[in-house]
Simulated assay, not measured.
Amino acid sequence: MQDLYEEVRSRAGRYFDEGYNCAQAVALSNIEALKGRADGVRQLAAGFGRGMNAGCACGAVCGGILAIGCLLAGPETKGFDETVEEAAAELHRRFAAEFGLVCCKGLRKKLSPFKNARCRNITVTAAAITLDLLLARKKPSPAPVGVHAL
């Protein structure tokens, strides 16, 4: 099991180093590690980096929520899904407990003036937290088009 966490952390870091934004790195690392298909995820997550380019919610959290939705929601999910809602809320709570806040601008000011050092660590940590939440809630339901469930 520890190998899976290392794989997700490594993938997230590698994606970040290759120029993917934090949301893309977190979403892709989790979906791929759990054998999902990541078709379209790069495009879906593209606008969430740098706090949606407005500095609001951290893109790494947004990417985690994308992975949670892709892997836990069924193809017929409409509106709210209790499992997805709980996992998303828990990701937000655990991320805030780890870093003190979820605001991208605040994180950038608080943690480091050096983007790559700061954001890479946040990205890798958010990927591991997301994996933990996904593994705790995995279910065998079919996934939406382009993504395979756990």
Rank of each mutant, 00 (worst) to 15 (best):
Q2F: 11
L4Y: 11
L4K: 13
Y5R: 14
E7C: 01
R9N: 04
R11H: 08
G13K: 03
Y15Q: 06
D17V: 04
Y20P: 02
A23V: 13
Q24E: 15
Q24Y: 05
A25Q: 04
A27C: 12
N30C: 15
I31S: 04
I31K: 11
I31F: 08
E32W: 06
A33N: 08
L34C: 08
K35F: 13
D39W: 14
V41I: 15
L44E: 07
L44T: 11
L44Q: 10
A45L: 06
A45Y: 12
G47T: 11
R50N: 15
M52D: 00
M52T: 13
A54Y: 10
G55A: 09
C56A: 10
C58G: 06
A60T: 03
G64M: 02
I65H: 02
G69A: 08
E82N: 07
T83H: 00
E85D: 01
H92T: 10
R93I: 02
R94F: 08
A97G: 00
E98S: 09
C104Q: 05
L111D: 01
L111R: 07
S112D: 14
K115A: 12
K115Y: 15
I122Y: 03
T123G: 02
T125I: 10
T125V: 13
A128E: 15
A128H: 00
I129F: 04
L131G: 08
L134Y: 06
A136D: 14
R137D: 01
R137F: 10
K139T: 14
K139Q: 14
P142E: 12
V147Q: 05
L150N: 09
L150G: 12
